[in-house]
Write a protein that binds this DNA or RNA. Structure first.
Lengths: 326, 326
DNA sequence: CTGAAAGCGCTTACAG
DNA sequence: CTGAAAGCGCTTACAG
């Protein structure tokens, strides 16, 4: 900045004003300064600006994984919104909860204006660390009382119960669950509980459960059919924790030559792209990750800029998409 | 920092040393300072540190999309590596090339120690902007001469030619291509050209091409079969720009009751999870996005810290995975 | 081993 | 409309 001030024959203060409050400076000097800045390829140093002004237009996001397309969509929705508000995104991926504290410490050191957290249970230390930093936080994919500050999402429990109820409504009597067995992941636990609730309410067995680690992906659906049909040969349908698992189940049905939905029913979760393309089309819960990301950005920026927010919890709708697997 | 210096009865300089060069300070004063820091919940302000020391442990990454699982994997590999080296990741998603310059300006303002760019053609302005900033840059998913500084990837052309050659080797005479028609995306163009090269070398038609926008996803495979079989009823195989397209083609084959590979062959690209699960198993090119991300991180950090790098271009291997679709 | 001085590149709050 | 002074929270390069 000093360079361009010298080159343009003005004070650094005037250069600063050209960028921050252009109306405060005479058009002639402004154009001289801007021309100089352009030829020197000057880009204002935002970190010096942050330090001096005390406001940092960056938002930190903590996600457990980028593989998960829900989180990828959330991040895209967030990123799109932040760009419109000229905030930058500082991203940290912490697969293991043990890494979390160290990672959060790294983020906090950059003094972000706000933090977005996604999924997973958070440790006591992490939560304390963030509380002490006294920075706005929104937890995504959550509609229950936020553990720190704000939350945005929908009830995973309700969504799973709704689609399981659809299976009950079709008259199925023997319905299994194919899920992932990560106990740290409360989102998976909530879905399974929603399924079980629906079964219990209908007076059906709620213990036809099959779980694998999340890494199994498509294979989970196949293995669930193999295992649960041995356990209950009258099995008529499978309710799945994600569309990936459901697609795996559908592939297994194809291999076995089962006709859907006459001989067997499958329900998914997520409405991923594959849901509409895999024959015969997957009936599933549509969850809008991008909307969650945008809503999280809106809440966070509102809190950062005004100090308050309309509501501590924001709900984003989900819907059941009916196709032909059920 | 001043607070904890006062509370511990030492100078700010000593507090700074406790964090940066713990060996330089007496164990007793150090433990007193650290205890004070812990009770006050002090996290060093890295942005002030950056400004004073002139080195900023953050790396900026520019990606066109997070939906693309190749890029998500690259980012994960990069993020994992950067964490081990205590660098933070500043992420920007710029779908449209027009946004690129503005986004890059935002990143540069944060004075990152290095930049990772992914995919897409970059505009002249963007390239000049980055050159002027004089910061190390690695372009990923590219094995040709870097447009700015360094590159890591493999030949998308070679990989596509190799798998197309496998189809030729099976004796197929009428082979089509199903791709995406984004001319800005040189990665898609290179794959199509690899396919065409193989066809030309084998003396076969290289003009059985079908394209849709990338957003069509699975549908592209289905539409390609519908369109190309009308154009060439003897069509025996389809070479696809990604596994998603190939899976869409496979679903269409199932709907038509075609047996693979006897009646029809399909080749994919990417070895996504779906490739191994969709019946009858997709023969495809395995590309390791995570390795590319890690290699990009290694090159960049080496350049940042030593000022030089072993090689300006690094190749990451790909391989053909043989299953039953071909 | 400890700390006083100067400065990183900006901005805030003024005075002219 | 323009700019001199002081300061953001650290670090560098020293002196003690």
């Amino acid at each position: 900045m000093a360079d361009i001030a010298a080159a343009a024959g003005v004070s650094p203060m005037t250069v600063s004003n050209c960028f921050k409050s252009p109306h405060k400076v005479h058009a002639d000097t402004r154009s001289k300064v801007m021309a100089m800045a352009a030829t020197l390829g000057y880009v204002p140093n935002l970190i010096a600006s942050n330090l001096a002004s005390g406001n940092n237009r960056t938002v930190a996001a903590l996600v457990p994984s980028l593989r998960n397309s829900n989180f990828a969509k959330t991040l895209e929705g967030l990123s799109d919104y932040l760009r419109t508000r000229s905030y930058e995104l500082l991203l940290a991926v912490a697969e293991h909860p043990e890494l979390e504290e160290r990672v959060v410490r790294g983020l906090l050191g950059r003094r972000p204006a706000g933090i977005i957290m996604t999924g997973s249970a958070h440790s006591e230390e992490t939560i304390n660390l963030i509380r002490q930093a006294d920075v706005p936080v929104v937890e995504t994919w959550r509609d229950t009382a936020p553990s720190i500050d704000m939350a945005v999402g929908f009830s995973l429990f309700d969504a799973a119960r709704d689609i399981a109820n659809m299976m009950v409504g079709k008259g199925l009597q023997h319905i299994g669950w194919a899920g992932y067995n990560d106990p740290d992941n409360e989102r998976y636990v909530q879905r399974r509980q929603g399924f079980q609730q629906a079964m219990t309410e209908a007076g059906l067995r709620s213990d036809l459960l099959f779980h694998t680690p999340e890494s199994a992906g498509f294979a989970t659906g196949r293995l669930a059919i193999e295992t649960l049909t041995r356990q209950e040969p009258r099995l008529q349908g499978l309710c799945c924790v994600t569309d990936v698992v459901a697609a795996g189940a559908l592939f297994e049905c194809m291999r076995r030559g089962w006709r859907l939905p006459e001989q067997f029913s499958v329900a998914g979760y997520g409405d991923y792209e594959i849901a509409s393309e895999v024959p015969p089309g997957l009936t599933t819960v549509k969850t809008n990750g991008k909307d969650i990301g945008r809503a999280a950005g809106e809440m966070l920026v509102q809190k950062i800029e005004t100090g308050r927010v309309d509501s501590i919890i924001r709900k984003v709708p989900y819907e059941i998409i009916i196709r032909h697997s059920l």
